[in-house]
């Protein structure tokens, strides 16, 4: 007591302790919010990764997953969970929560927040916005363009415009390159997809004689960032794709089916 009196020790103000606790809770809340954004963006990136057509772009599912995993968001989510854990543990009674409870609170909070953000369409905004600003993060939009805008590998993504002849249309890819697209080898379903979707993916092959001529063998829906797909939608697209690559798939004119298109289909089926 003497030392307390001699040194004129006095209790620190209550606000000092309250504000410290509030700071830790706020930082935890911030971590959950950033985690929510990361989850919403991950959900969007995963949904639109094009896994329904992975055989068209990759050797197998593993190489596809390695390419499309949203590493940035996974890293951010892991970081926010750790940061949230640290801050929650440093709140006044945070030590009482077990590791499981803290993880459930942090990850569960991010899942709830992520579901809400994803539901209101913020997942695509975050993914695209961050993709445009952070050089080492390839957004799912850019990734799809990189994967599908590759005529050498027999893939194009873009939109069809005016018919040029009965068997050719003008096609503009996402880089703005204009192509003469031969459609004679397409089935009615492919032609329907070509007419129905504003943006389409084209599987085929490039003409050896001309740089801007592409022979279409299969038409698939393009990148649809504004659509939220249910699992059944995606499964539907997957089965439509598999049906489209089967050799017996109906074509407009069997005589027009080129050997090259057969090879394209066989190559996909063999994966």
């Amino acid at each position: 007591m003497m030392r307390i009196s001699d040194d004129a020790v006095s209790p620190r103000a209550r606000w000092v302790f309250v504000s410290r606790d509030v700071t830790f809770w706020t930082l935890w809340g911030g971590a959950v919010l950033i985690g929510s954004a990361a989850l919403a963006a991950s959900a969007f990136a995963t949904e639109h990764a094009g896994w329904e057509f992975y055989e068209a772009t990759h050797r197998n599912m593993i190489t596809f997953i390695v390419t499309v995993l949203p590493y940035l968001w996974i890293g951010i989510l892991a970081g926010t969970v750790l940061f949230g854990y640290f801050n929650l543990r440093h709140t006044k009674t945070g030590y009482r929560y077990s590791l499981t409870i803290v993880m459930i609170m942090s990850i569960g909070g991010s899942f709830v927040g992520g579901a809400i953000l994803y539901g209101i369409g913020a997942g695509s905004t975050i993914e695209v916005m961050v993709g445009e600003r952070i050089p080492f993060h390839t957004s799912v939009v850019r990734l799809q363009e990189e994967l599908w805008d590759d005529a050498d590998e027999g893939r194009l993504i873009g939109s069809a415009s005016a018919p040029l002849t009965e068997e050719t249309i003008l096609f503009t890819d996402t880089n703005g390159t204009k192509w003469t697209l031969y459609t004679a080898g397409l089935s009615p379903k492919d032609l329907d997809a070509l007419a129905r979707f504003e943006e389409v993916r084209v599987i085929g092959y490039q003409a050896t004689t001309s740089d801007d001529v592409f022979y279409a063998c299969i038409i698939l829906p393009g990148f649809l960032p504004h659509e939220q797909n249910s699992i059944s939608d995606m499964l539907g697209r997957r089965s439509a794709f598999l049906e489209r690559v089967r050799p017996e798939s109906e074509i407009k004119d069997p005589a027009m089916r080129s050997n090259e298109c057969e090879r394209v289909r066989v190559r996909i089926l063999q994966k």
Binding site: I4, D7, V9, P11, R12, V16, K92, T93
Partner: peptide, 18 residues
């Protein structure tokens, strides 16, 4: 002990009935 009681007194407002 001296440090304990000084610290306790200084942080007396931190204590609550939790």
């Amino acid at each position: 002990l001296q440090e304990i009681f000084i610290k306790a007194y200084r942080n007396l407002n931190e204590f609550d009935t939790a």
